[in-house]
């Protein structure tokens, strides 16, 4: 865990705090607008589709598809150097929204556009757990 402390840790805001608490609890939470039946990410005080404030937090399936990716071979800072080579990916969640994350738990060369992935959680500090993704495997429980 100490290896993550010098990374760029997210600082939760009032609108994002429930998301980060969800990660602490190993749940991927998305905002859902009950006025227009739309999921959204990142967290906002309003629904960016219809401007309603009728938002509730719902646990997402945690599954998605890699829309694009890159393999970083020159780390952004020393704190990330031990992770090289690492995959930065844009993942389209089953519920619709897109999010950036890392694809871990596999050979970086095996990542492709269209790869099915599922969320896994990586604890970085007492307050922050990061949502990451690994190739989806039916046989893995949960």
């Amino acid at each position: 865990m100490n290896g993550h402390m010098d990374k760029f840790l997210p600082r939760p805001t009032p609108e994002s705090a429930p998301f980060w608490q969800g990660c602490q609890d190993h749940k991927l939470l998305l905002q859902y607008c009950t006025a227009c039946d739309t999921h959204q990410f990142y967290p906002r005080t309003i629904c960016a589709t219809c401007m309603s404030d009728q938002l509730e937090w719902r646990e997402a399936s945690g599954r998605g598809t890699v829309e694009s990716y890159t393999i970083v071979t020159r780390a952004v800072s020393d704190a990330y150097a031990a992770d090289v080579p690492y995959v930065i990916a844009l993942i389209t969640l089953a519920e619709g929204p897109r999010m950036m994350s890392n694809v871990i738990g596999c050979d970086v060369e095996s990542v492709k556009c269209g790869l099915a992935v599922e969320v896994v959680f990586e604890r970085w500090s007492a307050e922050i757990t990061m949502p990451k993704f690994r190739p989806f495997a039916d046989q893995i429980a949960g």
Binding site: K7, F8, L9, P10, R11, P12, T13, S16, F41, Y42, V72, R74, A75, V76, S77, Y80, D83, Y86, I88, M99, M100, S101, N102, M130
Partner: peptide, 12 residues
């Protein structure tokens, strides 16, 4: 990048 939802993952 976004300080919470992009930068922590280490994009250059």
């Amino acid at each position: 990048g976004h300080s919470q939802f992009e930068i922590p993952f280490g994009p250059t």
